[in-house]
Each structure stands twice: as C-alpha cells, then as structure tokens.
Amino acid sequence: MAKQLVKRDRLPLPVRIINTALLIFVVVLMGLPMLNVLAVSFSTQAKSDTPGLVLWPSPATVQGYTFIWNHVRFAVPFFNTIYVSIVGTVLHVLMASLAGYVLSQPQLPGRKTLTTFILLTMTIPYELTMIGIYAVNRDLHLTNTYAGLIINGMISGFSVLLMRNYFMGIPRSLAESARIDGAGEIRIFRSISLRLSISALMTIGTLELIRRWNNITMTVTLISDMKKWTLPVVLRYILFDQTTTSGTSYIFANAKMAAVVLTAVPLVVLYFFTQSFFSTGIMIGSIKE
C-alpha cells in the first residue's frame, strides 16, 4: 500500500528528468562563482589575475591568505565581527522574544495598534534615517564603540512579529494550566513559550547573525576608529577602495578572494548547523495570523 502511494505520488519520468536537470543547472549556476572565488583564492598572484574562469588552482598556494592576514591584519576585524555579531544577536533574540511574547497575549490592551505601529517601522527605508541615526548615536556617545554596533538593531519589527506569530501558535491551554499550577509570566515565558519555540529562535538568530555579520552601512556610519573595523567593511575596503587609480599599491585577486572566503566561511558553517531549524521556523512563523 505504502509502495503504491509512493509510486502514485511520483512525477512522471520526463518531468523528473527536466526537474533534475533544472536543479543541476541552478546548482551549477550558483556554485560556479563560489568555486571560482575559492579557486582564485588558492591561486598564485600571477595566475589569479588571469582573465577567464578559474575552477581549479594550479599550482595551489595559500599565498593569498597569508598576504591578506598580514597586510590588513585580518585577525582584528575578524574578532570584532564575531564579538558584535554574537553579543548583538543574543540580545536581539532576547528582546524580540520578550516583545513577541507580550504582543501575543490576547488580553494586552491596544495589541492591534501596537502591532500596526511595529509593522510601520518596517516600511521606513534605512537610507532616510541615516543622518538621524548618526546624530543620535553621536549625542549618546555611541560612535566608535562596540556598544553602538550592538545596540543599533538590537530590536527589529520583523523579529518581534515573527516571534509573536510563533507564540500565538502555541496552545493557550498550556499557559493556562501553568497559571493554575501557580507559574508566573516569566516562568511561563521561559519554561513553555521559549522551549517550544526553538526553531523560531534559531531562525531569527540565524537571520540576525547573518545581517550583523554582513552589515556595512551601520559600521561605516558609526565607526571610524580602525581598531573597530569589522570584516565586511575591511572586505569592501580591499575590494573597492583599494582599487588603484592614480595610486601605486595593488592587491592581487588571490588576496582579494581569500578575504571573501575568510569573510564568508563562518556564515556557511553556521548555515549547515542551523538550516533545519531555519526552514521550519520561517515556515511556521509565516502562516500564523
């Protein structure tokens, strides 16, 4: 019976062939540039600047990696990025889940108004607020501080609403039973709501970590102290600002691509570990009222 069902669910062979071919095409299309970046990063200085597509380094060398690590002291921005991304993400998840929990309570007065207001904050383009953000941070002495990078973006409408929707999907009877048993709101939040929302927490955590890791605009806005530069900012500096016009310095493509790989690898590794939570969380959160 089960075999019959499986058979019946299967697509016809020609469709499956087209499907597979299409998927392979998409994978190749997306994979080739990545492979190219990787191959160039392990190429020699001279080979790396060769026009055309390089898919295998010949000969292979870590010259690009050692150059970039020493030339721009990659370790400092690397650890800066880890610090602001992790601390910022933990705080972000905490704030979003607290706010989401409050908004998910049916007895909360003005719940719809609050939700609408939060939704409104998501419609304002960042570019419109850039000067204001800089001025506020300057007045609060948050420029050139890690705190500035962490506090800005500590809470976002998207994450709050995602958590709210997720919490609303948890049967209310669970919280009511806990209340009857004498549990307070903090206890219900910690022991029931959070524990049942691991995939949502992982989703917003992953999204936020990626956002923070790749954030250039906020860092450029707030930070001029080179000690506090983060990876994407350094990467942009290497890839674009260092492009020689009338200057005399030159960074070979292998070093540039090595910088790209070093910046991207932590995120790729993270995605491998969180992808199952990620897809579950984003789907479940999206279909709730």
Partner: peptide, 20 residues
C-alpha cells in the same frame, strides 16, 4: 585624524548633514 573605513563620500555627507 579620523579616517572612515569605507564609503568615504557617504560618511562625509552623513556627518556634515548631522552637523558634525
């Protein structure tokens, strides 16, 4: 000697716009 990390033109206008 303040040297912004990247995107100098954007930073310049942002800072001047904010009254720095």
């Amino acid at each position: 000697w303040e040297k912004p990390p990247s995107g100098y033109d954007q930073v310049l206008m942002q800072k001047l716009g904010a009254g720095e």
